[in-house]
Design a protein around this nucleic acid. Structure first.
Lengths: 364, 364
DNA sequence: TGAGCAAAAGAAACCGTTTTCTAACTCTGT
DNA sequence: ACAGAGTTAGAAAACGGTTTCTTTTGCTCA
């Protein structure tokens, strides 16, 4: 499976990296002159410039980014911290951040935490050392007092070194904290999805994805309940099922609801991945989607429009979310006046093939 | 859509970032002592250490990563360069690299190029400045002489500054170049997929995804042809359709083949995304999968097992690919003996529901 | 009680840039 | 021919750490 190439010395052919001093010596000028030629911010005669550039080429010189950073020049870095880059929504946020960063000549550090808050803490500190222009924390979290405390510290300690905390798709902290928040209308999307089902005539709507204290899950649940209330449909506890935001959890939760013979004609999954699991559970049980049971997801990850039936879901502008986060923080850095520090993007339900009116005879 | 918080001064509350000198002053010791306490590599009395740590806490001090890097200490960085992080396969490679990097205390810079070679060049140079321990280039490319020339330069110039070029899922360069290559058995996977279809009895197999000179596409086409040859099925040009690796291209290519009334009972899409397009084209034309036409993809991106029918495809261990790339380059750096510089991971076809024997009466 | 030595702390050089300040030119104009 | 501009170039001081080398301090033991 693994083949080894010819054994070469570990150190390769590497010589010493050439410095600006080497270039200066080679060109027969001072380091100051070399620096000036390369920065092109000071008058230099044509002859001198030519000598320097030739030396640079001969030595294949590139400046040391760390030295530049120390001296105050140097490229800024945006740090992106997320649970798992393979999750489609996160990847899209990441892409948005990276695009905007690149467009404006910044670099992008990415760290994943796999949901480990210990690691999140370590990573934020690491980023503080790195002088990241901003630390962008992505994704919902367990919204506890301890969390708020920790974030406040992050915000303040980043601010104290001239960096900035950005919360992307996370609930905001207190008003007075130095942090930028870019969120989306989580609750509104859930409201819309539920209202869509209700207006189709569904009354028993299974909500799959309860996670006490998880900000994203909570927001979606609240939207679901609010829609029920507005349609004067009583919320029944048995219809609210726990599930982490993964396929298997959705599968198990719906299986269980089915086994308990909970009466429902529609499933609102808190996440597209959860919807996938729900879909499988429904199929196992011989329920057709959408003829017998309607199904709605949340996130609108790219592939769900390929399913059969194509999944009705709530679209979240994840890429835009990332771009906005980067834009806000860079605008502020560049002192562009009136940089907002709190933005909420809207969501909307996209109706596809997985929802339909409930079957005529409402099952008991 | 966008709301603005209270207008605060742009500069926030940020004071000057405290340096090691500030800590020394606060603790009443020399900077050397502070450095030693923090590095914990030199005897220091308990009392002194306590004073220093207290000062560190009081000032909320973190070291300047750039200064450390300059001094030769400091965390190494791995640079990851890819077309687009939202493509599932790339995201998985990225996750693999990041995991291994994090496990070994390294940071990970991510740059995307959107397939722009100009940008690729710029990015590699940028990474050279950044002193990245390695630059990992991900994904197939147009395999031209010019490309090889450029890569050779990259390899040499990175090597000359003590960094290393890693090609991940790209064809290797010449033997003597200082580069590490981690590839997968691209051709073998295509061979397997085609052989699977052939052994089911298919003879007219449409290959969708020809891209002259694109290394990944070429490899898969070669595997397809080799399997045909081994089964003594003549290769017919009309069955080899051009398509870039995107859904729409697959859709168009298969539509066109259908319109031209090319005879086939199976489609081998060079990519799962292409397979998605193919699937839609087939459905439009009223061809059922797999009853009328079998369909095989390539990549095994997570969602394709959720399709109806579940897609038969070639599994590529993308995450493992990334992990291996990081591992190899870090092993070499740490001087771990016998670090290979060329690895090929194997692929295998995973048979799911989208393939079946061809329909009994072969259509004209 | 003082020589000798180990342990702990400090001074200063260094890493590779940028930039301020200073010095050396080259012209002009008289 | 020379004062005074106006250009270019260089020397040296940051930037914020680490580390070598030196010095001071505190013991032990004769």
């Amino acid at each position: 499976m693994a083949t080894t190439g010819p054994q070469k010395p570990v150190s390769g052919t590497q010589g010493r990296r050439s410095t600006i001093r080497d270039v200066a010596r080679q060109a027969g000028v001072s380091v100051a002159t070399v620096s000036r030629v390369l920065a092109d911010n000071y008058p230099v005669t044509h002859a001198t410039r030519a000598k320097v550039l030739r030396a640079v080429r001969q030595l294949d010189y590139v400046a040391n980014a760390h030295a530049k950073a120390l001296a105050g020049t140097g490229v800024e870095t945006l740090a992106l911290v997320l649970d798992d880059i393979t999750w489609s929504a996160f990847a899209q946020i990441g892409a948005g951040v990276e695009q905007e960063a690149a467009r404006r000549g910044r670099l992008c550090l990415v760290c994943t935490t796999q949901g480990d808050r210990q690691r999140e803490l370590a990573v934020v500190n690491l980023m503080r050392e790195q002088h990241a222009a901003a630390v962008i924390l992505v994704g919902g979290i367990q919204y506890t007092a301890e969390y708020r405390e920790r974030m406040s510290q992050f915000a303040r300690s980043l601010d104290s070194v001239g960096s900035r905390l950005v919360l992307c798709g996370r609930p905001p902290l207190g008003e007075d904290l130095p942090a930028t928040v870019v969120e989306y209308d989580n609750e509104g999307g859930a409201y819309g999805a539920t209202a869509h089902l209700l207006s189709l005539g569904h009354r028993g709507i299974l909500f799959v994805g309860v996670q006490e204290g998880q900000s994203t899950a909570d927001g979606r649940l609240v939207g679901y309940r609010r829609a029920l209330a507005d349609y004067q449909v009583p919320a029944v506890p048995a219809l609210e099922r726990e599930a982490v935001f993964q396929r298997d959890a959705g599968l198990r939760a719906v299986r269980e609801a089915l086994r308990e013979r909970v009466a429902f004609t529609a499933v609102f999954a808190a996440t597209d991945m959860v919807a996938l699991g729900a879909l499988e559970a429904l199929r196992e049980a011989g329920r057709r989607v959408p003829e017998d049971v309607s199904l709605v997801g949340y996130d609108d990850i790219p592939m769900v429009s390929e399913l059969t039936p194509r999944l009705t879901t709530v679209h979240v502008p994840y890429q835009e979310l990332g771009r906005t986060a980067a834009r806000l923080v860079l605008d502020r850095r560049e002192g562009i006046g009136g940089a907002e520090d709190r933005v909420r993007l809207s969501t909307h339900v996209v109706v596809r093939g997985s929802t339909a009116p409930p079957p005529a005879p409402v099952p008991a």
